[in-house]
Design a protein around this nucleic acid. Structure first.
Lengths: 215, 215
DNA sequence: GTCTATACCCTGATAGAC
DNA sequence: GTCTATCAGGGTATAGAC
């Protein structure tokens, strides 16, 4: 428990390096140095660099509760507050890193242009675990959201907004772009809350009118 | 016009390669082969590989109308239809590439973990040109959107949604994740349209109620 | 399981004749 | 402006003693 074994040291170091520098820019030499491990040991545990990445992604997946959700939801009970508390966590990561990095999974997902199937599957699994957690929040919100609302689809939209917001903030190096995305999402949720408050009554079906031909 | 000169051939080839394989995975050798140019010629025009990237980003920026907006808006006049027609263009790119790639700027933005200032500025400039175009559409929509709505912030949200949706679709290799993001955005716009239809009347300020402490 | 030394390749970039 | 040949360096991965 105190002195982590070699394999674990490698995975933890890799997690940090991939987060800070990305996968491609992290060399085996970087990793060996950081973990204080020799080349021979690494290749004793892993067939190659990509397999270290797989282990890292598995660790993210296994630790989503302890590493991400629990800290983000410390002292937050309301399910809808939880949604935005999680987003606030990413904001914090952006601020602390001067808008360099926030979501390690998203960064890897776009860095690796043609990831092999096992990598891609693990990225997707991480995203799914994330949306599962948000879906639970939205379900726990009960009647405060429209009954007809698709909780899972909405949860995915929260992830979409987070990842998109992070991308913009990173590119502009200004956290305000992330804030803007969250603000818009909040407006959307406010609209949903209003709909739930007036359940199925009044002028539904009054979408944005189109002048030109639709589609 | 017919036989593009060497420099142009390099930039066009680079644009395509960076899109397909990413910047890091495109080697100078790849580029020379594709453009049918010799090493000496490349380094005659460009100090290094990164400067080719700068030229590519400049070309995207200069050609946003001809290369992106004009084709997307072929036969579309309604300003709000234009918003979704542009998104449909990205969907098409996803479908045609089996969800491998869609937005070259976004891909580069996340691939390059710590891009040098000139690169980052050009990425940001491209995003800004994109949101400018959408902002114009939203302004042209006039009273069909709430007067109080921040057009620019909403345009950024459209970009956020597009980029986030592309990331998810790429990761899951399923265009339905992009469709889901667009669908949610459409729902949001429908809500906005309803608000505009009932201008400033009726129960504003009925956001999602919170049970726990706010913030 | 751990260590050192090293093979071998591909990278971006250069030199210098034409 | 174009060509060929090549450099120096860093990349992943391996070999083989301990």
């Amino acid at each position: 428990m105190d002195a982590p074994d070699t394999r674990q040291r490698l995975v933890i170091s890799a997690m940090q390096l991939f987060w800070e520098k990305g996968y491609g820019s992290t060399s085996i030499a970087d990793l060996l140095k950081k973990a204080d491990v020799n080349s021979g040991s690494l290749y004793h545990f892993f067939p190659g660099k990509q397999d270290v990445l797989l282990a890292v992604l598995d660790m993210y997946h296994a630790g989503i509760r302890q590493m991400l959700l629990d800290p983000a939801w410390q002292g937050v009970d309301d399910p809808l507050d939880k949604v935005f508390a999680l987003l606030a966590r990413y904001r914090q990561a952006l601020v602390e890193s001067d808008c360099f990095y926030a979501c390690p999974i998203g960064s890897l997902a776009l860095e690796l242009h043609e990831p092999d199937a096992p990598v891609r599957e693990r990225l997707a699994r991480n995203f799914s675990a994330w949306t599962d957690a948000i879906t639970e929040c939205l379900e726990a919100a009960g009647t405060r959201l429209p009954l007809a609302l698709d909780r899972r689809a909405t949860a995915r939209f929260v992830l979409t907004t987070m990842e998109g917001g992070v991308m913009l903030a990173r590119t502009y190096r200004e956290v305000s772009y992330f804030d803007g995305a969250v603000e818009q999402l909040k407006l959307y949720f406010d609209h949903l809350g209003r709909d739930a408050a007036a359940p199925a009554s009044r002028s539904r079906r009054t979408p944005v009118r189109r002048k030109g031909r639709a589609r």
